[in-house]
């Protein structure tokens, strides 16, 4: 068996070259960001010695910091609502597949995943304006409307993540609990939820990231006074490269790497448990 495998691996050396090239393509730009965030010079492309001064300036940038704080708040709230709605949607798509509305829900959940953000943003703005016109709510645009918009596309991602975990879950677990006397609501909270919990965490993190990252939709639906981090970054980047943004990028990358490593390790451990089970 191992002889066959080795033969197979040796047969495609170019495949491994392609893989290595792909990773270089994916990571070189990110590395360049990190390296130049420690550059003394204001000119991003000329190396003038190691310095952390841009991190210091970043910490002084009131506008950017308050935008970051707003983004974190919006992302946390939007991700939480998206997880609740996405879990319900996933339950429908997996468990009540024959229920009225399940089919149309499948399409409505799939569409936001690929829908160009610019259409989503424009359509939601028009909706909010017409709603304000008709029923007087939402009276003004800002945090609230950004959250609602983010929930809408984030819940689609959460649904996909939770759905795949639910589909993988043995449905007889729920039947067994019911058989032992637990009512449906109790079954959901004592059996289903604990079993799919890792996917809820993954879904929340994904939703949080997507919300933190969104420029286009937020630009449409936000109002005066509600400026998110991507909006500030965008207006600064439009004017050209700026070392402060490099410093910000490095911080974001560091946070993501730590979070993904921890999550990856937990998933790996759970996966191992699962394979032990089989």
């Amino acid at each position: 068996m191992s002889a066959i495998k080795q033969h197979r691996r040796a047969g495609f050396p170019w495949l491994w070259t392609a893989l290595a090239f792909g990773y270089v393509f994916l990571y070189a730009p990110i590395l360049s960001l990190i390296v130049y965030s420690f550059n003394e010079s204001r000119l991003v492309t000329v190396w003038a010695g190691f310095s952390t001064r841009w991190y210091g300036e970043l910490m002084q940038n009131e506008q950017l910091l308050s935008a970051a704080w707003l983004s974190i708040k919006v992302a946390a709230v939007a991700a939480t609502i998206a997880v609740v709605l996405g879990t319900l949607a996933a339950m429908t798509l997996v468990r009540f597949r024959r229920q009225w509305g399940a089919r149309s829900m499948g399409i409505m959940v799939a569409a936001p995943l690929v829908m160009p953000e610019i259409i989503l943003g424009l359509s939601l703005l028009l909706l909010f304006m017409s709603m304000a016109d008709l029923i007087g709510w939402p009276a003004s645009r800002g945090q609230g409307t950004i959250i609602m918009a983010h929930v809408t596309f984030c819940m689609a991602y959460v649904t996909v993540v939770v759905q795949s975990r639910l589909a993988y879950m043995d449905a007889s677990l729920e039947e067994a609990a019911m058989d032992l006397g637990a009512r449906p609501l109790k079954v959901f909270f004592t059996i289903t939820l604990p079993v799919i919990a890792p996917s809820l965490v993954a879904g929340w993190l994904l939703a949080f990231t997507l919300s933190m990252d969104d420029l286009v939709v937020a630009s449409f639906v936000s109002g005066p006074g509600a400026t998110t981090l991507p909006m500030v970054v965008y207006s600064s980047v439009r004017l050209g490269v700026s070392p402060q943004i490099n410093a910000l990028a490095t911080i974001i990358i560091a946070v993501v790497v730590v979070a993904v490593s921890v999550a990856g390790y937990l998933m790996y451990r759970q996966d191992k448990q699962r394979t032990n089970m089989q």
Partner: peptide, 20 residues
């Protein structure tokens, strides 16, 4: 009667042990 109100219990083919 729903399953949770029947005095009948079942052993599942997959065993359906709660993993957590």
């Amino acid at each position: 009667l729903p399953p949770y109100e029947r005095q009948v219990n079942m052993m599942f083919q997959s065993y359906a042990l709660f993993p957590h």
